[in-house]
Design a binder for these strands. Structure first.
Lengths: 177, 177
DNA sequence: TCTTTATTAACACAGTTGTACTATAAAAAA
DNA sequence: TTTTTTATAGTACAACTGTGTTAATAAAGA
């Protein structure tokens, strides 16, 4: 996927990349859909694990939350390949009859996690609707992921971080900076 | 594209949908890339035209701006198919060596237009970086487009409008409501 | 009327796709 | 040792892909 795009992710190419024959690969995965589903869930799990690890570290909350959000984006993730591949699957799902559920999206879980943490810390400005703010942040993350992948030059890692900081500041109280 | 997804957009299927033979279609478009480029630009142009039309209407600025932004999203556009197809092309571009330039994206032009209008009207809060706010709004629009297409049930048209209104209010002065 | 151009259709070619089936080798169990 | 799983590889098939070529038809111009 990273080298040849979605079209290159054929069963044959994947088998070749894995050093297996076509028959061998199909011994483990009886269909392409099964293989794709496994990969999709694997990527989601890895992202979730990485996010949990950051949350479990002993930094201050502000740093944690920023680091988590940056970890979800292709340009700024230390994980490297996973957020990019996740977006590939996401765009692949933009197909009739192939819609993947949101709940199994590690990024959505991470965003919800970030928001409930901000709420628990009493960082959120008054009169904000948490549901709407969660979906707004989730959309921002997905949009940044898409844009930074399509236009890495204009939307650099530093730029992405600036935008996320601006957004966080806009939903957090003045005192938190 | 709308019926069978990106994979269904083969030269043969398009010819059939257009009521032409394969040879006839290739008389006008010598390659698939040429055909795709034409369609991509056509969609972008239509969106731009629609946006210009709204800006040229005689409503009050607040209404215009909201209407323009809603027009860029699949669920809320009165244009109907174009924003959805545009997103298909956008996700199609998430492929190595196939990156389409941002400048020819009608949606990006529209967002820039919205921001400079807000600035001209003196609606924007003080101390905001216009460049960053433009990219933030552009990412939000693309994210909303992606999410509402993948999850039309949770992210309904009304919900999308609420989110956009919240975002506009967050970057505009208190007096503008 | 004759000739040139525009338009349509049909077929062929080489390549790729997902899937199914079969034979072979290694490992484990009896 | 024999038998049964586990694992790997190879091949075949039908369907599709983009592209190229060639023939036939309609329209327009000289």
């Amino acid at each position: 996927m990273l080298e040849q795009g979605i079209e290159g992710a054929s069963v044959r190419n994947i088998a070749k990349e894995a050093g297996l024959s076509l028959g061998s690969l199909r011994y483990y995965f009886h269909s392409q859909e099964e293989l794709m589903k496994y990969a999709r869930e694997l990527v989601s799990e890895r992202i979730t694990q990485r996010v949990d690890k950051i949350f479990a570290s002993d930094k201050n909350p502000n740093e944690k939350i920023l680091e988590v959000l940056l970890e979800l984006l292709p340009q700024t993730s230390k994980l490297g390949r996973e957020p990019k591949v996740r977006l590939f699957f996401k765009t692949l799902a933009v197909q009739p009859e192939k819609t993947a559920a949101v709940d199994q999206d590690g990024v959505y879980l991470a965003v919800k996690n970030v928001m409930s943490n901000l709420l628990l810390l009493n960082f959120i400005k008054k009169n904000l609707d948490i549901g709407i703010e969660t979906e707004r942040l989730y959309a921002l993350i997905n949009g940044l992921a898409l844009n930074s992948l399509l236009n890495p030059d204009e939307l650099s890692a530093q730029r992405v971080e600036e935008i996320i900081l601006v957004h966080l500041n806009s939903i957090c109280k003045e005192s938190v900076k």
